[in-house]
Every structure is written in C-alpha cells, then in structure tokens.
C-alpha cells in the first residue's frame, strides 16, 4: 500500500489549515498528498431550462476556477517544499465523493478542515466532516 494522504481543500480557512497540517505530516513521514477540491453538486437538483442549457459551460468554469485559484497554488507550494502531490477537482456530494476518491487512490488517511457551522445549520444541512467521520473506510483527521 502506498503511503499517501488525501487532503480536502476549498479555498477556505479550514481548507488551508487542513493543507497546512497534512503537509507537515507528509514532510515528516514522506507521504504523498492527494490535494482534492470537491465542488458541491448533486445530480438530483431542480434547475430552470436556462441553467441546464448553460450547465456545461458553468461546469468548466467551476473546474477552472477551483484549479487555478486553489488547487494549483497549493500544489506549487507543496512542490516547493519537496512534497510529492497529485491534484483532483471533482463535482459531487462532498463526503461521498471524498470517500470514493480515497478508495480509488488507496490512501491511508483523509485530512479535512472544520467548517465550524452552528448546531442548527449542521443539523439542517449536515456537516461534511461529520458525515465523513461516520462513513469513511480510512481514518479521518478533522483539523480545527
């Protein structure tokens, strides 16, 4: 089994902390990082005809934005520090998608930042970290 860790980023403070934590660990243990940006998306949403017609363009824009403003800079930073990494940008429900990618890449661990939602908000919408911890096949580190 390869020595690799999946780290979830999204340009937020929490994501940056997760990246920071994961890079420190990777440096110590010589692990490879899979830098992942999941763009929240569901195939079961209800859209207007116009939204559907423009979806393909939007999707490419979303991927482009995530790649150029978050994932690529993170990868450049890691490489500068001599850490081996790979990048993934993917649409889907966050927790489920992270797990699928973790399985695909055979990682030993998932590192994710905390969003710090209030109780009611996470009760209504669920929390990515919470779902992930409950369902992940590999250990999950939630960075506060």
């Amino acid at each position: 089994m390869s020595n690799s860790v999946l780290v979830a980023v999204d340009g937020s403070e929490g994501g940056n902390r997760a990246l920071q934590y994961a890079s420190e660990r990777a440096k110590l243990g010589g692990a490879k990082l899979i830098v992942t940006y999941v763009i929240e998306w569901s195939p079961y949403s209800f859209n207007t005809p116009e939204e559907n017609a423009e979806r393909h363009v939007r999707r490419e824009q979303e991927i482009e934005r995530a790649t150029s403003s978050v994932v690529e800079p993170a990868a450049a930073l890691l490489k500068a520090e001599g850490i081996e990494c790979e990048t993934v940008v993917r649409h889907g429900p966050p927790a489920e998608t992270l797990i699928k990618l973790a399985e695909k890449h055979g990682v030993q661990q998932i590192v994710i930042g905390r969003r710090g939602q209030s109780g009611i908000k996470s009760l209504l919408f669920g929390s990515v970290a919470g779902n992930l911890v409950q369902t992940s096949p590999v250990p999950v580190v939630v960075v506060p």
Binding site: P43, R55, G92
Partner: peptide, 24 residues
C-alpha cells in the same frame, strides 16, 4: 443514474433534464 459515467460528474443529469421538463 445507474448508467451515468462516474468519472464525469457535474453535467446535466438525466434526472435534472426530466425534472425541468416535467415542471414545464
């Protein structure tokens, strides 16, 4: 979504196209 390619999510799904047409 049983036949949807899992490697290219984020495009208009069959469900979404149907839902939009049905609400019309």
């Amino acid at each position: 979504g049983d036949y949807a390619d899992p490697d290219s999510p984020g495009e208009v799904s069959h469900f979404q196209a149907l839902a939009t047409a049905v609400s019309g």
